[in-house]
Every structure is written in C-alpha cells, then in structure tokens.
C-alpha cells in the first residue's frame, strides 16, 4: 500500500484540502461506522495533550478501530533513552497507523521517513499541527459556505502561535485577506509576512483591538496571549486585557462573522459571548472529530468514493 503520512498541511494542494473537507462532511452526516474494523490505531503522545488525543481516539473508535498507545511519556521507554526510531519501528509491528505527538520539531517528518506504516502528525513542538489546521478549515468552510475570498482576522499571540502560522500556509490557495491583531512583542514574524508577499496574500497589521477594527471580519480567530511568552512582564500587564474579546465589541460585526479559538481559552473571550450567535468555538472543537476521521481514513488509503458508498454505517 502507498504510504500516505500526514506531516503538514503545507504538503497539500487546494484540491486535496477540498477533498478532505468533503470527506469530513460525510463523517459529520454519519460519524458511526465500522469502516476501520480490524484495524489498530496507535496514539503515541510523547508530550501530553488530552484534547487532541481524545479527539483522535474518539475518531478511531467511532469508525470501529481498536486503539493502543500511551498518553504520558513518563511511563514509556522514551525517557529511558530509547530513540524515537526504535519506538516507531516497534509500534509499526503492532499498528496499521500511528498518530503521534512529540515535543521535538520535525519528529513526525522523520517518523514518516522510517516507519513502514502511515504517520499522522498530532503536533511536533512549535512546528506543525495539521489536524488542528484541518478542523479550522472545515469550520471556516461550514460557517462561510466557502474558503475563497474571505477576510480572516487573527488575534493575540501571532509570534509563537503555530495554529495561525499553519492557517496562513493552508489558506494561501484561497485568496484570503488577513488582518494581524497583536501586541508588538507578539507580532506576526517577518518570515510569515514574507510568505504572504511571496504568495500575493494581502495583509493589514493592527495593534488596536476594538469594534471598528473587527467590523470587516468573516472569521475572528482568537489565540491565547500567554504570560510566559513575554520577556517584559510590565508589557504583559499592559496588553493582557487589550486582547480580550468583549460582548460589546461585536456590535458592528458582519452577520456571518464567526469567532474561532483552538481552545483551551484562558482570558481571551468573555464568557457572556458563549451564547452569542457569533460564537463558534465549541462547534469548532466538535468538527475536530470529523476532520480527524477524514485524516485517519485518507492516511489508510480509504477514498471519498468508498466513504460515500460505505455499507458499514451504524444508524
């Protein structure tokens, strides 16, 4: 079988992204199936991430696969000095596919080169987190009815936020206009702005965050502004509340505007917004299940046609 690892969304064309979105739509219609019956999915979390692991394991379980793996690297040989290669080769003997999260950058790419089974990257350090990107794209598509020609506003930590960097990479196929809203210390790095210029992506930078600034948004993508990212704690104290989204800031929002957040949130979105029709972050997290079902099936070589003609659906 052809190996179909998923290391980064940057490897995917526009067509492939649209294809995976169509697949996710099928799983949203019918999430419970026996499509992966007889398959073993390994989830190797060399770094804990409960949300991502539960989402992948639910995706596998709802498709009838069995799941093996570890959630905490302390109980595995990883800390006893075994190399990543040895762990991957050992697990490849047992599983049909490996979902892995690792604290080192490039770990998934390396694993995909040595493993005889497909690898799905569930996050490698600050580098890539393609299943998050895929569920973000699916959420944008679902709420806007398209991916093309959207005004996407990214707010908060744009310097270290890996999800916003992946978003630039994935959206460059779809003629977006980006607005970067961040404190100076956490502004979008030059290398990503260069990426935008290289791909003729329009972008506008702001440090202010208010109703007028966000009135032109189709998507308002919020990220955490974390204390530990600041070298100057005085600066943190000055800006931390400036990037809090408050209910009254939605007064001029476009009717179709949706608020996304990769979760967990700390202090970025007022709780009173949760009931507002613009809030979408909880549904966004549920979309992660369908997006990950699509990614697992695609990595295992199951096609959209097979999913549409699937006879194993459990009603």
């Amino acid at each position: 079988m052809e190996k179909r690892s998923l290391v980064t969304i940057a490897d995917h064309s526009r067509e492939k992204i649209e294809y995976l979105i169509q697949m996710a739509q099928e799983f949203e219609k019918h999430p419970n199936r026996r499509l992966l019956e007889g398959k073993v999915v390994a989830t190797l979390f060399f770094e804990p991430s409960t949300r991502t692991r539960l989402s992948f394991e639910t995706a596998a379980n709802r498709l009838g696969a069995r799941v093996i793996g570890f959630a905490d690297p302390k109980v595995t040989s990883g800390t006893k000095g075994e190399t990543l290669k040895d762990t991957i080769m050992m697990v490849s003997n047992y599983a049909d596919i490996i979902v892995m999260r690792h604290y080192l950058e490039g770990a998934a790419r390396y694993a995909s080169e040595i493993a005889p089974v497909p690898i799905v990257n569930a996050g490698d350090g600050a580098n890539q987190h393609p299943s998050q990107t895929m569920l973000d794209l699916y959420s944008i598509y679902k709420t806007q009815g398209r991916l093309d020609d959207l005004d996407i506003f990214l707010v908060g930590d744009l310097k270290y936020g890996r999800t916003v960097h992946s978003m630039l990479n994935a959206m460059h196929h779809f003629n977006p206009t980006f607005h970067f809203i961040a404190p100076e210390e956490l502004a979008m790095p030059e290398i990503y702005k260069q990426f935008c210029r290289d791909h003729s992506i329009r972008y506008v930078e702001h440090t202010d965050f208010n109703a007028d600034v966000i009135s032109g948004a189709d998507i308002l993508y919020m990220t955490r502004v974390q204390r530990e990212r600041f070298t100057d704690l005085m600066e943190y104290e000055r800006v931390k509340d400036r990037y809090l989204l408050k209910l009254d800031m939605l007064s001029k929002a476009r009717p179709n505007m949706k608020i996304l957040h990769p979760l967990p949130r700390v202090n970025e979105i007022e709780y009173s917004i949760d009931e507002n029709p613009h809030a979408y972050y909880f549904e966004q997290a549920r979309n992660g299940l369908y997006a990950r079902q699509a990614l697992l099936c695609d990595a295992l070589g199951i096609t959209l046609d097979e999913i549409r003609n699937d006879k194993t659906i459990i009603e």
């Binding site: 290669k85 950058e105 490039g106 390396y110």
Partner: peptide, 10 residues
C-alpha cells in the same frame, strides 16, 4: 536545539 536532528542519531 528542539529540532529532531539534534536529539536523534540521524
């Protein structure tokens, strides 16, 4: 320093 190549014999 957090690159896999600096932490794995490769």
């Amino acid at each position: 320093p957090k690159c896999i190549t600096n932490n794995e014999p490769m």
